[in-house]
Amino acid sequence: MSDSASSPRPAFRQRLGGNLRWALIAVACAAVLVMPAIDFAQRAYWVRVIGYAGLYIILGLGLNVVVGFAGLLDLGYVAFYAIGAYTYALLAGSQFNIHLSFWLILPIAGLVASLAGVLLGMPVLRMRGDYLAIVTLGFGEIIRLLATNLTGLTNGSQGLYDLDKPLLFGLELKTGTHYYYMIFGLLLIVLFLTYRLDRSRIGRAWIAIREDEDVAQMMGVNTTFYKLLAFGIGALIGGLGGSVFAAWQGSIFPDNFNLFVSINVVCLIIIGGMGSLPGVIIGSFALIALPDILRGFRDYRLLLYGLLLVIMMIVRPEGFIPSRRVQLELRAQAPAEPQTDAPPAEQA
């Protein structure tokens, strides 16, 4: 029949495509790895831009667990980034004269952010998607307002500065290149972990919740637990990203954590392809690095994001690089009679 007739030809092309793809990925990785070592005029600039995009990939991977896997639209993700950053700033700076090691603070910041995620999650997770979006948006703003107004703790809009630089085997990490590699390493770890989560019983439970929460629960998925888990893991990754950001910048201000951080991260996930890990990476380069590189373009960045979001939802809601499930569909032979006799899906 038609699907057994997937002759050797497409299979061959597919394998070639697969190899080509891996080759491209390998080349891109190598380029990213050696770039800071090459001496060229604008090296510092490129290290900063790519490093920044890498940081957004980390945030994107974290939020992707919440939005892409579990289908919970969180518009206040910046809150966890801020919590991670302030945790580092308070534990490695002169504000309270506490000077813990970066490597100790990193897990603490992750845990604090994760705890905040679970605490926020508990009351709001029963809400429908759009309410969740607004409440998380409000939460993100509350955290920023608190950072601005709790001057005794955060020094308000003056910000916290002269933060300690991390030490690695006695080497003080202070140049852009150091953070470039630190971000690259953290990115690989986060990518590896989210990849494993995706391809497991846990990832399947999340996708099931995203697809149909009631049915997922009927299949025995404890939806509250899995949603909290997604929130907690997403927040943890955001917290890690925030700490790295604070260490890299050496100073933080409440305005670093405005609504647009959340919007950027949500946009890069959706435009890259919801639930798709390569999508997050491509989305981050497209939305964070590209506008910076094409400078004239930078002013119009948000205008184009807005437009892109609308067009994307209408024309290509699955994003530029759809998740593997959608890819499977594109690759698989269509069934003989593709649901001609099926009733409309949303027949309530």
Partner: peptide, 9 residues
């Protein structure tokens, strides 16, 4: 919802 956020931005 996402389209609305896009329109808003």
């Amino acid at each position: 919802l996402i389209s609305a956020i896009g329109a808003s931005i």
